[in-house]
């Protein structure tokens, strides 16, 4: 079967800065494919090349079997795109703007715009520029999904959405996959990638570091935990945590009322719970693992290393 996206040796240079160093990627049709990596890793650049908004320096790109550079508008009608930095400042209503995009795509199904808007809780009657960031993002999602494209390219699709709408979006992605559409999305949120992505590519400094499954990534993920214990009990609690293999970066912040112990955990949750059970705990926060940071640690260096080497690259 022809891959929905087939990229090989893709390089993109801006002047002396290289955004992509020979990226290879193949995505089978009907899959949900996530891409993660720090800002500047090349996620957005890759997506914009798929849409022919920017042009590759070298390498080959095939989208739905065609070269975006040559295929023109007909190919883009088969793609739904949500930009990472969604800018919308028109005074026309959401309905008028979405109808305009539908016309550009030659789509006739206006009912689908209303259905999608209702599903996401978007008021189509209001001027787009008066909408909140989250509601503008919904307009962006509706225009990407409205023409039922064969391929969805979504750059940070849930940014600005509240959790309920995020769930609705994830349901839309699953339905798209079930309908045979291919979804290529970038995200920072592990739960999101975990819930929908079949495969994940890790992009760093313009290179694909690995293509993996979510399970493998999650195993490597660190969770930030914060435990509030009675005043003066912090040091003893921290000492117990340090005995766990899974706990890293244990620190204590003392105050008059209570102590706050923070740490980062990799797996080892049962042992952590056992420590909690033996102690007096006022409050407990366990954060969602940060997929991006986890992955970067897993594949050598942490996020700060990554941004440092990136800065080096730009300045060199």
């Amino acid at each position: 079967m022809t891959p929905a996206i087939d990229i090989s040796a893709l390089t993109k240079r801006y002047g002396r800065t290289t955004a992509l160093h020979g990226v290879d990627l193949a995505i089978e049709p009907g899959r949900v494919f996530g891409v993660i990596g720090p800002n500047g890793a090349g996620k957005t650049t890759t997506m914009r090349i798929l849409l022919d908004i920017i042009r590759p320096t070298s390498g080959t790109v095939r989208v739905l079997g065609e070269d975006p550079r040559e295929a023109g508008p007909a190919l883009r009608r088969r793609i739904g795109y949500l930009p990472g930095e969604l800018a919308m400042d028109t005074r026309v209503s959401g309905r008028a703007l979405l109808t305009h995009y539908a016309q550009l795509n030659g789509a006739r199904d206006r009912a689908r715009i209303s259905a999608l808007a209702e599903r996401l809780g978007l008021d189509l009657g209001r001027p787009v520029r008066s909408l909140s960031k989250g509601n503008k993002q919904k307009v962006g999602l509706v225009q990407a999904f409205a023409h039922s494209p064969d391929l969805l390219v979504l750059d940070e699709p849930t940014s600005g959405l509240d959790p309920l709408v995020q769930q609705e979006f994830l349901a839309m992605v699953r339905e798209a996959r079930d309908a045979g559409q291919t979804v290529f999305l970038s995200s920072h949120v592990i739960s999101e990638i975990e819930q929908v992505a079949d495969e994940v590519a890790v992009l760093r400094d313009g290179r694909i570091v690995d293509v993996s499954t979510v399970e493998r990534l999650r195993a490597a993920a660190l969770r930030d935990v914060r435990v509030t214990v009675p005043a003066a009990a912090g040091d003893a609690f921290a000492a117990e945590l340090r005995r766990l293999d899974s706990a890293h970066d244990v620190a204590v912040a003392a105050s008059a009322e209570h102590d706050i112990v923070s740490a980062r955990l990799r797996d080892g949750i049962p042992a952590f719970l056992a420590v909690l059970a033996r102690s007096t705990v006022h409050d407990l926060v366990v954060q969602e693992p940060d997929l991006e940071r986890a992955v970067l640690q897993f594949y050598g260096g942490d996020a700060s290393d990554a941004s440092a080497s990136q800065a080096e690259e730009v300045s060199s």
Binding site: R48, L51, D52, I53, G72, P73, A74, R76, R77, I79, Y81, P83, E85, L86, A87, M88, D89, T90, Y101, L104, N105, G106, G140, Q143
Partner: peptide
């Protein structure tokens, strides 16, 4: 510069159009 051209071009229009 407003960032809105990118989305328009991502739809079924050609540059010269």
């Amino acid at each position: 510069e407003r960032g809105t051209l990118e989305l328009t071009l991502a739809h079924g229009v050609s540059r010269h159009q």
